[in-house]
Design a protein around this nucleic acid. Structure first.
Ligand SMILES: Nc1ccn([C@H]2C[C@H](O)[C@@H](COP(=O)(O)OP(=O)(O)OP(=O)(O)O)O2)c(=O)n1
Ligand SMILES: [Mg+2]
Ligand SMILES: [Mg+2]
Length: 987
DNA sequence: CCCAATTGGTAG
DNA sequence: CATCGCTACCAATTGGG
C-alpha cells in the first residue's frame, strides 16, 4: 500500500503534486474543524452499512449475490420516483448523520480510491428501478455521481467500457449485478435480460459448456475477471487475454476428455438460459446511433490507455531496439569483468548474421518450404511493412522494409506469414550463448547479428566459419552467414558477399573486391547520401570505382567534412572504427509515430504523461537520471491526407523538436511529464494534426553518483554551469518553496502520508532532503494560492526550471508555420526501388500512396530548388502576416487557458475555486496575486480565464442545493472576481 | 571562433 | 478489417554570443 502511494505520488506533475497536497490539507482542515476524522475506507464501509441497516427491504450483502434472475427479473413498476433526483438530499442528511456516528473512527487517510466493494447503494437502487433498464442505468449513473461528489470522491469515472455492450451469461464472479453496475458507471451498456444479445460486443461468462461454445463461437466470450481487472486498472484491457475459450486458432485439437466430462457436468447443472437466448432474437432493441458509432470506434489508437502496451508488443522495430539495448548492456558488463587489454587496433573481424532472420524463424511455425515459396513476415496485406523476406522473394526484388503491396507487385505469389517474436528471441539466445561459449569478444549489432574480434585467432578461418555455421544451424535450424575482413567495414562487405547461407573470408585482393561493391552497400549510405553520390558521380548506381574518382575535397564539401572523409576512407577499404562496447548510453527515448490520433489537447497531455511514465521506467531500469528533456512532435504535412495510406500511420510529417534543461537530473515521471507538457505548449501543434510524439531524456548521469554528490555538495552544484537556474542565489535555493507549503496543515496529516510526500518533495528538489521537520506554523489554515502558483509573478524570482530563455520567445516563432517540404508531385522520375514507368501507369490513388511512402522513407525528394525558394517566400509571408484577431483564433490552441511552465493554470484555478468554497471564498492575497498574473496575459487569454471561472461558478450554482450556505457566500466572492476580470478586459 | 539547439539521416 | 512507421547516435545546420 505504501508503495502504491509512493508510486502514485511519483506519477504526478509538480502541479498535480502540489494540488494533491492541498487537497489532503483541505480535507484535513475540514475534518479537524468538525472534530471528525473519517478515513475514506471506514467511511465507505459504514456508509453502506448504514444504508443497509436503515433502508427497509435491502439485503445488501455483496458477498452472497442474489440469483441473477431474481435481481434482473424483479422490476417494481410501482415505484416511480427517480432516485437520480431524489437521492441527493436524503443522502446529504445521511452523510451528516454518519459523520457524527462514526466520529471516533480513525481511518487511514491514504487510500484515495477506496476499495471496490460495498454496493449496497446499487442494490437499493435496483430494487426500486423502473421497467426501462436503460433509463434506470442513466439514473443510477447520475445518482452515483452525486453520491461521489457528496462523499468527496472524485466524481469522474473513466469511461472504460464506452462502446462496449455487455451481456452476462450464467453465474459469474463478480456477480452479474456487480458487473452491471461497473459497466454502466464506466460508460458501457449492459444488456440485462431477454435482451438483444446479438448486439452485445462481449459476452461475459465464467463457465464453459459445450453448448455455449457452440452458440457463442463467433462472439467475444470473456471471463468476468476482465471487467473487474479493467475497472481496477482504470482502462479497458485486451479482452483476448481473458477469453473463455481456448485459443482455437492456434490450438485446433479437441478439448481433452477430462475437460469434456467436466464441462458436461457443468452443463447439466446449469439453468438452461441458452434456449431462451435463441428465441428472443426477435425482441432485439436497436442500439442508438451514438452507441453504434462508439462500437465502431473500437480501433485502438493512442487515446487508449493500453495503447503503448499493445503497440509495443506488436512492433518489430520496438523489439529490435529493445533487444539491441539489452544485448549492449549484457556485453558491457562482460567487459567490465575483464577490463584489462588496452584498446588495441583490431586486425580481423568476423561479422555473423542470420539469413533473413524473421522469415526463416517464422517459417518454422508454418508448413511452407523457405527455399521454394516466396515468404514475407508482416502484419497486414497492403500497406503493412515487410519485416523480412526470404531469398526466394528477394530474387523478385522484394526487400525488407517495403510495403506488402509493393512487394506483391514484384512478386505476386508472395505469402505473408506472421511475426513470432518469442521465437526470434529464443534463436537469438542460441546464437549468443553459443558465441559466448566460444570465449571470444562479442560485439552485438542486433538480435540476429554480432561482430567478433578474431584478431588473435590463429586457426583456420574456413574451418572456424563452418564450425560456427554448423553449430548454430544445428541449434536453431536457421542458417547464418559469416563475413570476415580486416576491419568492421570489410567484414560487413564480406558478409554481404557471403549471403545467403555461406561465408566469405576477405584477406587478399581487397581492392578488386571493393571495386565491384556498390556505393549503396556501404554502411552509413542510405537514400539521402546515395542521392548525393549519384548527383556527384553522374551514375545511377555508382560503385566504389566511381567513388574513387571523386577527389576528397569534393566529397567533404558536398557531403560534409566527416561524411566525406568517411566515404573517402570506405572507398579505399579503410575503417578506423575500433570495436568498443564500453560506450555509455547518452540518451533514452520513447518514440511513437503510429496510432497518434487525438481530438483534444487533454488527450495529448494524457498521452504525454504515459510517455513520461514509460521513459521514467526505462531510466530507472538503467539506474540513470537525465537533465535534458526533448519533445519531438510530428505534424501532418499540410499536403498530406488526414488519413495516410497506412492505417493509423503517420503519413508525411513535419517534425518539431524542443528541448528543456532541468534544474536537477531526474528519472521521475511527474517532473518529466510536467516538462513535456510545457514543451508541447511551446510547439503549439493542434492535437488533431499530431501524427507522432517522441520523448528523449539526455544528459544522463548515474543515479547513485548524483545522489551521492547532491548530498555532499548541494550548494556547489548550483553554481555549476550545466545547471540552468534562473536568477537564483544560494539563499533562494536553500529554502525553496518552503513558505509555499502550509506546514501547519502539513503537520496534521497522518504520519505515513507526510513521510511519502516529504520524500517526494525532496526528490523533486522542492524541499531539501534533510528537512526533517517543518518550520514553525505559518499564516492560518487557509489555502494559499502561492502553493499552487509555480512561481511568483511579482517579487523575487523563485526556483524555476528553465524551458527556454524568455527573451527568445518571439511572437512569430510561437506557432511553427514551417516550410512544407514538397509541392504535390504528380510524376515520378526515377527511384532506386521503383521503376518509374511502371509507377506512372498505376492508378493515381495507388501511385500517390506509393509516393507518400517513399517520401516518408526519404527515398524520394520531389523538392527542387525552385520549390525551396517558393517555400521560403511562403515562410516569410507567414511571418509578416499581421496579427489579427482571426489569426489568433486560427492558431492552434493547446490549452483552453494559458499555463505556467510547470503546470496548468486552468487546473489550478479550478482547484483553487473548489478549495475556496469551503473557506468562505478565495483569500484576498490570492486574489491580488491572481490579478497580478492576469495583467500579464493577453486579452484573449484573460477572456478564457474569465469564461472558465464563470463556467465553474455556473456549475456550482447548479448544484447549489447540495452546498451549504457557506458555499454560497464563497460563490458570491467569485462573482466579484469575474466582474473584476471583465473590468480588466475593458482596458 | 565558440556554443547549444535543432534538424537530418542511418541501421537493424 | 486495416496495422503496430523504434530508437541510439552521429553529423550537419542554424542561430546565438
Ligand atoms: N527494415 C527492417 C530491417 C530488418 N528488420 C528485422 C527483420 C530482419 O529479419 C531482422 C534482421 O535484419 P537483417 O538486416 O539482418 O535482415 P534479414 O536477417 O532479414 O536478412 P539478411 O540478413 O539475410 O540480409 O531485423 C525489420 O524488421 N525491418
Ligand atoms: Mg540477418
Ligand atoms: Mg541483421
Amino acid at each position: 500500500m505504501e508503495d502504491d502511494y509512493k508510486s502514485f505520488l511519483q506519477s504526478l506533475d509538480d502541479s498535480q503534486l502540489i494540488s494533491h497536497i492541498s487537497s489532503l490539507s483541505q480535507s484535513q482542515v475540514k475534518t479537524q474543524k468538525d472534530k471528525e476524522i473519517i478515513g475514506s475506507d471506514a467511511f465507505d464501509d459504514s456508509f453502506n452499512e448504514y444504508l443497509t441497516r436503515h433502508i427497509p427491504g435491502v439485503v445488501g450483502d455483496e458477498k452472497n449475490p442474489k440469483e441473477d434472475d431474481e435481481a434482473q427479473g424483479v422490476l417494481d413498476d410501482t415505484v416511480e420516483q427517480n432516485p437520480g433526483e431524489n437521492a441527493p438530499e436524503p443522502i446529504n442528511e445521511l452523510l451528516d448523520e454518519l459523520n457524527e456516528e462514526f466520529s471516533d473512527d480513525q481511518g487511514s487517510n491514504d487510500d484515495e480510491i477506496g476499495p471496490m466493494h460495498g454496493f449496497g447503494d446499487y442494490e437499493i437502487y435496483f430494487d426500486n428501478k423502473h421497467k426501462k433498464q436503460q433509463q434506470g442505468d442513466k439514473n443510477y449513473i447520475e445518482w452515483d455521481k452525486t453520491r461521489r461528489i457528496l462523499q468527496g470522491e472524485d466524481e469522474y469515472r473513466e469511461p472504460i467500457f464506452k462502446g462496449c455492450v455487455i451481456f452476462v451469461n450464467g453465474h459469474t464472479i463478480p456477480s452479474m449485478n456487480e458487473i452491471h453496475r461497473l459497466v454502466i458507471i464506466h460508460g458501457g451498456k449492459f444488456l440485462s435480460y431477454l435482451g438483444a444479445k446479438r448486439n452485445a460486443t462481449h459476452i461475459i461468462c465464467d463457465r464453459l459448456t459445450p453448448r455455449k461454445q457452440q452458440i457463442y463461437k463467433n462472439c467475444k466470450v470473456v471471463k468476468a475477471k476482465w471487467i473487474a481487472d479493467s475497472v481496477e486498472k482504470g482502462y479497458l484491457l485486451d479482452w483476448k487475454e481473458y477469453r473463455l475459450f481456448k485459443e482455437i486458432a492456434y490450438d485446433q485439437g479437441r478439448l481433452s476428455d477430462f475437460h469434456n466430462e467436466f464441462a458436461l457436468k457443468q452443463f447439466n447443472m446449469e439453468e438452461d438460459d441458452d434456449i431462451e437466448m435463441q428465441e428472443d432474437s426477435l425482441e432485439e432493441e436497436e442500439l442508438s446511433q451514438e452507441e453504434k458509432e462508439a462500437v465502431q470506434e473500437r480501433a485502438i489508437d493512442a487515446k487508449h490507455p493500453d495503447f503503448l502496451n499493445q503497440f509495443f508488443s506488436k512492433s518489430r522495430l520496438h523489439h529490435l531496439s529493445m533487444w539491441k539495448s539489452d544485448l549492449k548492456l549484457q556485453f558491457i558488463n562482460k567487459v567490465k569483468k575483464s577490463k584489462h587489454e588496452v584498446s588495441k587496433r583490431v586486425t580481423r573481424v568476423a561479422h555473423i548474421d542470420f539469413d533473413c532472420f524473421f522469415a526463416t524463424a517464422s517459417c518454422q511455425k508454418t508448413s511452407y518450404d523457405i527455399n521454394e515459396v516466396p515468404l514475407a513476415v508482416s502484419h497486414g496485406q497492403t500497406t503493412s511493412d515487410v519485416a523480412s523476406c526470404n531469398y526466394v522473394a528477394r530474387k523478385s526484388g522484394v526487400k525488407n522494409g517495403t510495403w506488402v503491396r509493393s512487394a506483391r507487385r514484384l512478386c505476386p505469389d508472395l505469402i505473408v506469414i506472421p511475426y513470432e517474436f518469442d521465437l526470434y528471441e529464443k534463436y537469438a539466445n542460441c546464437l549468443y550463448n553459443y558465441l559466448i561459449s566460444l570465449n571470444v569478444d562479442i560485439y552485438p549489432v542486433s538480435i540476429d547479428e554480432a561482430l567478433i574480434d578474431l584478431s588473435d585467432y590463429e586457426g583456420d578461418l574456413s574451418q572456424w566459419c563452418e564450425m560456427v555455421r554448423g553449430e548454430i544451424f544445428r541449434l536453431t535450424k536457421c542458417p547464418v552467414s559469416i563475413g570476415i575482413g580486416a576491419n568492421i567495414l570489410l567484414a560487413k562487405l564480406s558478409l554481404r558477399r557471403a549471403k545467403p547461407n555461406g561465408y566469405h573470408i576477405l584477406e587478399t585482393g581487397v581492392d578488386d573486391f571493393l571495386s565491384t561493391v556498390s556505393v549503396s552497400d556501404l554502411p552509413g549510405v542510405g537514400y539521402s547520401l546515395m542521392d548525393k553520390v549519384i548527383a556527384e558521380t553522374g551514375k545511377s548506381s555508382p560503385t566504389i570505382t566511381d567513388l574513387l574518382r571523386v577527389p576528397k575535397e569534393r566529397l567533404m564539401k558536398v557531403l560534409g567534412p566527416k561524411t566525406g572523409q568517411k566515404l573517402y576512407d570506405y572507398s579505399r577499404g579503410i575503417d578506423p572504427t575500433n570495436l568498443d562496447h564500453t560506450a555509455e548510453r547518452k540518451s533514452v527515448s520513447v518514440d511513437i509515430n503510429y496510432g497518434i490520433r487525438f481530438d483534444t489537447h487533454a488527450q495529448v497531455e494524457d498521452f504525454l504523461s504515459r510517455l513520461a511514465v514509460e521513459v521514467s521506467k526505462r531510466l530507472k531500469n538503467l539506474n540513470v537520471v537525465g537533465s535534458q528533456v526533448t519533445l519531438k512532435l510530428a505534424k501532418r504535412d499540410p499536403d498530406s491526407p488526414v488519413n495516410p495510406p497506412k492505417y493509423l500511420g503517420m503519413g508525411k510529417c513535419i517534425f518539431f523538436n524542443k528541448s528543456a534543461k532541468l534544474g536537477l537530473p531526474t528519472s521521475q515521471p511527474g517532473i518529466i511529464s510536467s516538462e513535456l507538457k510545457s514543451l508541447a505548449r511551446i510547439l503549439t501543434i493542434p492535437a488533431q494534426e499530431l501524427r507522432g510524439i517522441a520523448v528523449a531524456i539526455g544528459k544522463l548521469e548515474d543515479a547513485d553518483e548524483v545522489k551521492k554528490n547532491r548530498q555532499m555538495t548541494l550548494n556547489q552544484r548550483i553554481t555549476k554551469g550545466t545547471r540552468t537556474l534562473k536568477k537564483i542565489d544560494e539563499s533562494d535555493f536553500k529554502e525553496p518553496l518552503d513558505d509555499e507549503i502550509d506546514w501547519q496543515v502539513f503537520e496534521s496529516l497522518p504520519w505515513d502520508i507526510k513521510r511519502e510526500i516529504k520524500a517526494e518533495l525532496s526528490r523533486r528538489g522542492i524541499i531539501q532532503k534533510s528537512a526533517s521537520s517543518s518550520p514553525g506554523p505559518k499564516k492560518n489554515g487557509k489555502a494559499y494560492l502561492q502553493q499552487l502558483l509555480p512561481t511568483a509573478t511579482t517579487q523575487e524570482p523563485k526556483y524555476v526550471r528553465i524551458v527556454e530563455s524568455p527573451k527568445k520567445v518571439s511572437p512569430k516563432k510561437l506557432s511553427p508555420q514551417k516550410r512544407s517540404r514538397t509541392g504535390s508531385p504528380t510524376k515520378v522520375e526515377e527511384d532506386l526501388s521503383y521503376d518509374s514507368s511502371i509507377l506512372n501507369e498505376l492508378p493515381s490513388s495507388v501511385k500517390n500512396e506509393v509516393i507518400e511512402d517513399m517520401a516518408i522513407r526519404k527515398k524520394y525528394k520531389p523538392q527542387t530548388l525552385k520549390e525551396k525558394f517558393k517555400e521560403s517566400v511562403k515562410q516569410t509571408k507567414v511571418a509578416n502576416q499581421p496579427i489579427t484577431k482571426q489569426w489568433i483564433d486560427e492558431q492552434p490552441k493547446i490549452n483552453e487557458v494559458p499555463k505556467f511552465q510547470n503546470g496548468d493554470i486552468g487546473e489550478m484555478i479550478v482547484g483553487w475555486m473548489e478549495m475556496s468554497l469551503d473557506q468562505d471564498g478565495p483569500h484576498n492575497d490570492d486574489v491580488e496575486m491572481f490579478f497580478e498574473y492576469l495583467k500579464c496575459l493577453k486579452f484573449d487569454k484573460i477572456k478564457r480565464v474569465e469564461i472558465l471561472i464563470s463556467k465553474e461558478i455556473k456549475y456550482y450554482k447548479s448544484i447549489e442545493a447540495m452546498l451549504g450556505p457557506k458555499h454560497c457566500t464563497a460563490l458570491k466572492e467569485w462573482d466579484g472576481v469575474v466582474d473584476r476580470i471583465r473590468k480588466l478586459n475593458i482596458f
